[in-house]
Simulated scan of single mutants.
Amino acid sequence: MEELETPRLEHGEVLIMNKAFGICGSDIEIYQGHRVVRTPLVMGHEATGVVVDVEKSVSSLSIGDHVVIEPNFFCGKCPHCRVGRTNLCSNKIVLGVNYDGAFAEYVKVPEMYAWKLPTNLDFVKATLIEPLSVVVHALKDLSVMPGDNVLIIGGGPIGALAAQLLREISANVVIQEALPTRRAILEKMGLQVVGTSDEEEKKINDLFNGKGADLAIDAAGNRTTVIQALKMVKPGGTLVIVGLTETKAELPVHQVVRREINIRGSIIYTGEFAKAIELMRKKADLFSKVITHIFSLSHFKEALEIAVERKCLKAVIKNY
């Protein structure tokens, strides 16, 4: 860690003292050098805190407000933004990727990207609002019904949050996760979990009564998981790909066509932040089970290493 100057506010910005922030898979990619970003850079984007200063033009926030940061800033002018698909903004600024982020004592953001927190929601639990927004967007317009079979490949935070949300509508959810440590955590959360061996894969068929998955979600993001998810989807079913990967996967196009599989990619969110805040307000105790490790700021490096080694589900730094 090193000393940084407190950010200076520009027009329409607020200064936030970070109180808690989560460590995301994208942070790990940057930390390990697998994702090219500008340097120097302060990482981190899943953050909550207290407003400690506001630029004079700011009208919706005041000093002392508790907020969660929406970390993707869109331009509002490009073709994607003009039709409401702000997640595809051509000029997007991303906190902790191409703009100094939240792994620091202070961060500044435009006023519209600091959302007031419900009074019953603490800073640590509220760090899940950003990843929960990703899940809400991924499930948008899918019309999942009670009893539908849903396979989630990848039992990380996104997969676990998706499973919890889908179980709230009584879907029959199965998570496939390769790591035994994560499987144990997910099982303690009361979720149906299987491994990746051939024998374990047969369990999926049994849990779905031989009918296949109405919906499969690839939350792992590699060439094998996409193919596995596609294999398990029933004819007329849907595959949503949320996990990010730079690897190429050869899809059996004939299966997609003959079985009329709907395939959809999903990236961050477009207007789902407010819904995620409301979900956390109502179900904070449920969703916060995803947070398995909480560290003080002085133990940040230890938290990062545990996240890198995937010994946790979600690690959060608490700075209060």
Rank of each mutant, 00 (worst) to 15 (best):
Y113N: 11
Y113C: 04
Y113R: 01
A114P: 06
A114L: 10
A114R: 06
A114W: 11
W115N: 06
W115C: 10
W115H: 15
W115A: 09
K116C: 09
L117P: 02
L117A: 04
L117K: 05
L117I: 01
L117M: 08
L117N: 00
P118Q: 10
P118S: 04
P118K: 09
P118L: 03
P118G: 09
P118C: 05
P118M: 07
P118N: 01
T119Q: 14
T119I: 10
N120E: 11
N120W: 12
L121K: 06
L121I: 11
D122V: 12
D122Y: 01
D122K: 04
D122L: 00
F123H: 11
F123V: 08
V124L: 02
V124A: 03
V124T: 06
K125F: 09
K125L: 07
K125D: 01
A126C: 10
A126V: 04
A126G: 12
A126Q: 05
A126S: 14
T127P: 05
T127F: 08
T127A: 00
T127G: 00
L128P: 12
L128T: 02
L128C: 12
L128M: 13
L128S: 10
I129D: 05
E130H: 07
E130V: 07
P131Q: 03
P131V: 01
P131F: 08
P131H: 06
L132A: 03
L132S: 06
L132W: 03
L132F: 03
S133P: 02
S133L: 03
S133G: 04
S133Q: 07
S133E: 10
S133Y: 09
V134E: 09
V135Q: 04
V135I: 13
V135R: 03
V136F: 04
V136I: 14
H137F: 11
H137R: 15
H137G: 09
H137E: 13
H137I: 08
H137Y: 14
H137W: 13
A138P: 12
A138I: 11
A138V: 11
L139W: 06
K140A: 14
K140C: 11
K140L: 13
K140G: 02
K140W: 11
K140V: 01
D141K: 15
D141R: 15
D141A: 15
D141M: 13
D141P: 12
L142E: 09
L142H: 10
L142D: 00
L142C: 12
S143P: 02
S143Q: 15
S143D: 15
S143Y: 14
S143W: 13
S143F: 14
S143G: 14
V144Q: 09
V144S: 07
V144P: 05
V144M: 06
M145D: 14
M145I: 12
M145N: 15
P146N: 07
P146T: 10
G147N: 02
G147R: 09
G147M: 00
G147K: 08
G147T: 00
G147D: 11
